[in-house]
Design a protein around this nucleic acid. Structure first.
Length: 301
DNA sequence: CTTCTTGTTACTGA
DNA sequence: ATCAGTAACAAGAA
């Protein structure tokens, strides 16, 4: 599941791979993943180039040079972007033993060709992701609907305290809501709350100021670390080179239900919170506010 | 075969 | 206004 660290990794890589390269051709094989009318989409891109690439929440925003328009990409659950420079072999699909490029070419739902013969492939197993050309106004609406950027310096403890004040939802649902903080998904919500020693079911109004501060610090710490390790590959995620994210090895609870907690050896539990599969350590993430029983408290790994 | 999974939105009911 | 819960979307894995 591409979340902030994965989308950031892709964005960073695209910056030095496709920036300012002239687009020569756009091939759409699955029309449903393009939100615009096909001809408009192609016409806007061809002979144009991307002059700025940024991430906002889980969106990749590519600013077009010739017009005041933007290509926005959301990968949702299983969207993948692969870049191929001329005829180089892409890493993904090692295990198949097949020619990786042929495989990619076969599976791609959309291909952007650049004038220097490099290509950008979009592939989406579940087909929930999308690409869309939008204008300035629509971009502003999109950005306004998203909450604060968690790795931005402007996201301070004070802002977090205000955000969480007077809210009655549980902490996990709060973290997943993109209108509060943009970019956290199921993996990093669970990992953040383990790091903070807070059970995902805890209601915001039951958290002490110390709890709030711990969650705040954990958000920054986990996301920064995950970006550094180029994201998490759990099922499907691969970067633009076709390589896996290395944060997978650092996961403490996500996908580790039934295994031992790295901190205390208790068995990691899986439940449903906010309609999502949720893993936590029953001992390190206690059910109540007695944080002094939490071995993680005050400690950052 | 059915059920589950996942991000996001839309909708319902409290 | 707020919040919880659920259906919908698609397709593969269990």
């Amino acid at each position: 599941m591409p979340e902030l660290p994965e989308v950031q990794t892709i964005t960073n890589d695209l910056k030095f791979k496709i920036l300012n390269k002239k687009i020569s051709k756009v091939e759409i094989r699955l029309e449903s993943i393009v939100k615009n009318e096909t001809q408009f989409f192609k016409k806007t891109l061809i002979n144009n180039s991307f002059e700025k690439i940024e991430r906002r929440g889980k969106f990749i925003i590519l600013k077009l040079k010739n017009k005041k328009e933007y290509l926005v990409i959301h990968l949702r659950l299983t969207g993948q972007l692969f870049y191929q420079n001329k005829n180089e072999i892409i890493a993904g699909g090692h295990d198949t033993g097949e020619n990786d490029f042929n495989l990619l070419n076969k599976k791609a739902h959309l291909i952007i060709y650049f004038e220097d013969n490099s290509k950008l492939f979009y592939n989406d197993q579940r087909q929930f992701g999308f690409l869309q050309i939008i204008n300035d106004q629509e971009l502003n609406i999109l950005k306004k609907r998203l909450g604060v950027e968690p790795l931005d310096e402007k996201f301070t403890l004070k802002i977090f305290q205000e955000l969480t004040k007077n809210k009655k939802t549980n902490i996990k649902a709060f973290l997943l809501n993109q209108e509060n903080i943009a970019g956290i998904g199921n993996i990093y919500a669970d990992e953040t709350l383990w790091e903070a020693g807070i059970r995902p079911t805890r209601n915001l109004n039951s958290l002490s100021p110390e709890n709030i501060e711990k969650v705040f610090k954990s958000i920054k710490k986990i996301l920064k670390k995950a970006v550094k390790f180029r994201g998490t590959t759990f099922n499907n995620y691969l970067d633009t080179n076709g390589d896996k994210g290395n944060f997978s090895k650092m996961l403490k609870v996500y996908g580790r239900d039934g295994e031992k907690c790295a901190e205390c050896g208790s068995i990691i539990v899986k439940t449903t919170v906010a309609g999502r599969g949720t893993r936590y350590c029953p001992k390190c993430q206690p059910d109540n506010q007695k944080t002094e029983t939490n071995p993680n408290q005050g400690k950052l790994i």
